[in-house]
Design a protein around this nucleic acid. Structure first.
Length: 436
RNA sequence: GUGGGCGUAGCUCAGUUUGGUUAGAGCAUCAGACUGUGGCUCUGAGGGUCGGGGGUUCGAAUCCCCUCGCCCACCCCA
């Protein structure tokens, strides 16, 4: 009775809401994504960097923006009792760009070489209500090209993302592109838009009326029919861009076309992070439901100066691991074999008959592993038959049997699982298997 | 924070409308089929406080109330 009560308690302990365990069988796909990313990133010269999972809260407040939703209510922020200071506050990173740029500034990496390319991978945290493809602890893989305003880089990051998805075999994604101007052209447009919208105030939904003061741009994004009608009559930002932004955007579009990347202009694509300027883009996948972005990026020419570095242009994207894999699973559904594969299979399985042989098997396993031959054996004292079943289930190609007979002859019985053929061999012969 | 859906074996689910004897199936697990051998087949076994608590009732997986959890959507965000 007591035993079962104890068991029950353990079972009731579960992963916190909005977090996920990645079980062994799910690692096949995870690893594939990481591998493909590293390959593509390195082909384009992006170097890996890792930054802490938590940072000084001020980094995000300053970098992402005080009034953004992320900073206002979605951050995991703690008092850092280890710091010894009264008001020391740390925050689990809600995204990784700010951290990477902090490192760029902290080590004055721009002094060694102004232009740098980085890639990163890691968990990110946001306090949200979980939903399809949206977790509280999620993972992002991203790249950042720092130290240049060249529109070619905006395009390069997009092309890097598409190469990742293409290599993975993810079909059916779409690229949404927009520009949101810079600190010069954005404010005038904001005012124009606001004034124009006020004219139609009576046709807007309650929410949008409140958006007029808080964030005008979000009205453009509203899904209400009546608001859409109004917003479609509004002037697009394109007419209000400053010369520089106009030229930049033009260059981005032309270059995308030049390298055959299909995209869709979305004038209503806006960002919730303050640091974005000029180009913003998003890669979406229709199989995902309400939250369909699998990768999002853009240019952020003000962030570095904002956190204390020299004015430096930069552009990058963050790819959502969970959402990308979700999309990939949907696409691969047909050939489901890939989805539940073991990440690794030993080369041989060692089967013993009797206690003596069992000890010998264990010792043999150590020697084989020292020689780089992967192997595994039974630790449950099961029958030879059960051991064979396990070997079969693992999918090993070869099995080694040791019983009293083999011990006496000082030989090993090698069995080929595909053909069923058995032969007596010496240990040295086994080591040749590594090559296969 | 708001709304909707769902919680029965490790997994996928039936059973809930019309309360009734030991709660079922498939898959998975384990074992056996002359005992030193896999895949197929056959046979059998283990495994469930029917999410939890309370109530109604002679009797609740089934009806009522509360609660927890998960999922989806909204808000919001990317």
């Amino acid at each position: 009775m007591q035993k079962s009560e104890g068991l029950k308690r353990i079972v009731e302990l579960r992963a916190p809401r909005g977090t996920e365990d990645t079980l062994p069988q799910q690692w096949t796909l995870w690893r594939r994504l990481e591998k493909v990313c590293r390959e593509v990133f390195e082909l384009a010269g992006y170097q890996e960097i890792r930054t802490p999972i938590f940072e000084d809260t001020r980094l995000f407040v300053r970098g992402i923006g005080e009034t953004t939703d992320i900073v206002e209510k979605e951050m995991y922020t703690f008092f850092d009792s280890a710091s010894g200071e009264e008001d020391s506050s740390i925050t689990l990173r809600p995204e990784n760009t700010a951290g990477v740029m902090r490192a760029y500034v902290e080590y004055e990496l721009y002094k060694t070489q102004k232009f740098q390319k980085y890639h990163y991978i890691g968990p990110q945290f946001r306090k949200e209500r979980p939903q399809a493809g949206r977790l509280r602890q999620f993972h992002q893989i991203g790249i950042e090209a720092v130290g240049s305003q060249d529109p070619l880089l905006d395009v390069e990051t997009i092309s890097v993302a598409t190469q990742v998805y293409d290599r993975l075999g993810l079909t059916g994604y779409e690229i949404k592109l927009n520009t949101i101007g810079c600190e010069k052209c954005r404010p005038p447009y904001r005012n124009t838009l606001k004034e124009a919208l006020i004219q139609h105030k009576k046709n807007l939904c309650q929410l949008c009326i409140s958006r007029l003061d808080r964030n005008v741009f979000r009205v453009l994004d509203c899904k209400q029919e009546q608001c859409r009608e109004v917003s479609h009559k509004m002037p697009a930002i394109y007419e209000y861009l400053c010369q520089e932004c106009k030229e930049h955007f033009q260059a981005v579009k032309e270059t995308l076309t030049a390298i055959d990347i299909q995209y869709e202009l979305d004038p209503f694509l806006v960002r919730g992070l303050d640091y974005y300027t000029k180009t913003v883009y998003e890669i979406i996948h229709s199989s995902l439901g309400a939250r369909n972005a699998i990768c999002a990026g853009g240019r952020y020419d003000n962030l570095i100066a904002e956190i204390g570095g020299p004015p430096t242009g930069a552009v990058g994207f963050a790819l959502g691991v969970e959402s990308s894999l979700l999309a990939l699973r949907n696409v691969l559904k047909e050939g489901a074999s890939l989805l539940n594969e073991r990440t690794s299979t030993p080369s041989v399985y060692l089967i013993s008959i009797g206690q003596e042989a069992r000890k010998e098997c264990f010792k043999l396993a150590q020697r084989l592993r020292e020689h780089g031959l992967s192997c595994d054996l039974d630790y449950e004292g099961r029958s030879p038959k059960a051991q064979m079943r396990m070997a079969n289930k693992l999918g090993v190609k070869k099995v080694i049997l040791i019983g009293p007979e083999e011990l006496e002859k000082k030989l090993l019985k090698l069995k080929d699982m595909a053909t069923g053929q058995e032969s007596l061999v010496r240990e040295e012969d086994i080591l040749q298997l590594k090559a296969q």
